[in-house]
Nucleic acid binder design. Sequence first.
DNA 1: ATTAAATAGGACTAAAATAGTCCTCTTTTA
DNA 2: TAAAAGAGGACTATTTTAGTCCTATTTAAT
Lengths: 153, 153
Amino acid sequence: MLRISKLTDYGTVVLAHLAHDDSSLVSASDVAVATSIALPTVSKLLKALARADLVRSTRGAQGGYQLSRGAKEISAAAVIDALEGPVSITECSSHDGHCDIESVCAVGGAWQRINIAIRRSLEEVSLADLLQAQRLPSRFEFAGTPINIEMKN
Amino acid sequence: MLRISKLTDYGTVVLAHLAHDDSSLVSASDVAVATSIALPTVSKLLKALARADLVRSTRGAQGGYQLSRGAKEISAAAVIDALEGPVSITECSSHDGHCDIESVCAVGGAWQRINIAIRRSLEEVSLADLLQAQRLPSRFEFAGTPINIEMKN
DNA sequence: ATTAAATAGGACTAAAATAGTCCTCTTTTA
DNA sequence: TAAAAGAGGACTATTTTAGTCCTATTTAAT
């Protein structure tokens, strides 16, 4: 259920590598070697991440990529947006999506609300959190009720 | 990002219809007519929902389906599980999934944690909630920009 | 008993999304 | 000016998802 794409997952790994090598420029091929992800794929990911301004690129020889801001300033939501676009949880809730059964749909905006709730929680999680895999401080509201999320481990 | 499949969405609509017609048995074709979803599709959905024990089926003439429990006792998570299987947010976090880059993956269990968080929130939401959530214009911020979500009925 | 109305299960096909590769162009440094 | 990088996009293959259809089984009504 509710999966993110493999590319997004890889994207996180790539970002993680950049976060590690903090100050210096890292080329796509370095990242590919370090992560064992095929170079064309890494390249594609980094281009998309650059367009979304999550990484900054420097062209030319000795060029490469670096995070455009600190790992704490990059949210999981931003990563997903960059690599999958701002798509919603259901088709009919996306902006120009058209829903065949709209007129008889009893469910209406319910999934949207869930979507928003999930989105908020993803905004609370930063790349730094992902790296540390420590307790995630997630707390958000759904349908007016505050929901606390505790994580085991 | 993070979408549920169209079938799951339809499944919710189907369940919503059953919840409406509370006490009596409703045949798959009745549901199909009422929801404007093609009969074979409705049929397929109801079978899956029956296997997951979200609806109870009665075979034979005058047979049909009904919810196996009250709408409040059916969580969004259960619906998703029934129709998409208990898959995780990433491939490598699913139970028997194998991840190519496991050995160098710096992200590790981070997405799993997010997955658990989302899952919990989906367990908090019942079918009854989904039904009530009609027509609430929503507003939230993304990347500092306020975003309005309008629902067209 | 027989027939008709249902569901059960699964095989199959079609369509769409995803993943991955490759080519050509531009930029920059040595 | 050559080599090392990224930019952009076209293209292909694969996988997933959606949707249909067929056959078997169950049950109620006649």
